[in-house]
Design a protein around this nucleic acid. Sequence first.
DNA 1: CTATCTATATGTATATTACATATAGATAAT
DNA 2: ATTATCTATATGTAATATACATATAGATAG
Lengths: 127, 127
Amino acid sequence: MHGHQHEHGCCHGGRPERFLEPCLLLLLAQQPDHGYTLMERLGVYGFPAERPDPGTIYRMLRKLEQFGMIRSSWQEGASGPAKRVYEITEDGKSLLASWNDMLKRNVERVHQFLRDYEAFTVKEHTL
Amino acid sequence: MHGHQHEHGCCHGGRPERFLEPCLLLLLAQQPDHGYTLMERLGVYGFPAERPDPGTIYRMLRKLEQFGMIRSSWQEGASGPAKRVYEITEDGKSLLASWNDMLKRNVERVHQFLRDYEAFTVKEHTL
DNA sequence: CTATCTATATGTATATTACATATAGATAAT
DNA sequence: ATTATCTATATGTAATATACATATAGATAG
């Protein structure tokens, strides 16, 4: 029952923000790839596997390239339309390491919340 | 070295987003309080304890009140300027439960990322 | 030759946060 | 006394990320 009852109006529950960028960097660190396949691979990190949003993903890839975190080249001789294949740069790997540190810290903050919420519900139950 | 080197320009690492709302709800579930004190209590969840942003916090409180998640009354007879004391409503408790569920799911997503990043660095090291 | 699949891209709206600034009553200091 | 500081609440504006809608086009299947 919980989780989706507040999607409209105020306080819609949803996805974690600022998470797409590190996930794309990690996927490209694992192996070079193009946007269309990356959309599917993002499912591992909880992004909607069936109906991902191409616009958001391609835009993020272009932004990362603008700042030199990834680089791209057009793949030739493949089937279907031309594919822009991205690979991570050294700067991108350094940024990925930063994201890893930051996400670790943020997880700690959320764990503190989850512990306190648990304590709150236990206390409520004993009233 | 990591963690703050990309604060400017692209890809600034920083705080988790959409985290202020659940934290305020949890703090008010623990006990009714007014904005000025809540600012300090937010330090438990990693918000900057010395120099929090009043604007963001008061605005979020007003939004939560607009949607009936908390309610407020002016506290009389206290020292200093008038204080608007907030308390959580039943709807607010329900929303808080939703946030708890969602944050649990999101933590799982981040854990997947952290595991994969660890595996990536191990692999890089053995090359 | 038309429809569908693969692949990339832009336009716009909404939401959250950061930073700057405004207001005002209460209390402390000179 | 009157000035400065502390407590407390509030608004204006900009930056950023995401969601949703839509556009484009080559390749392939019916």
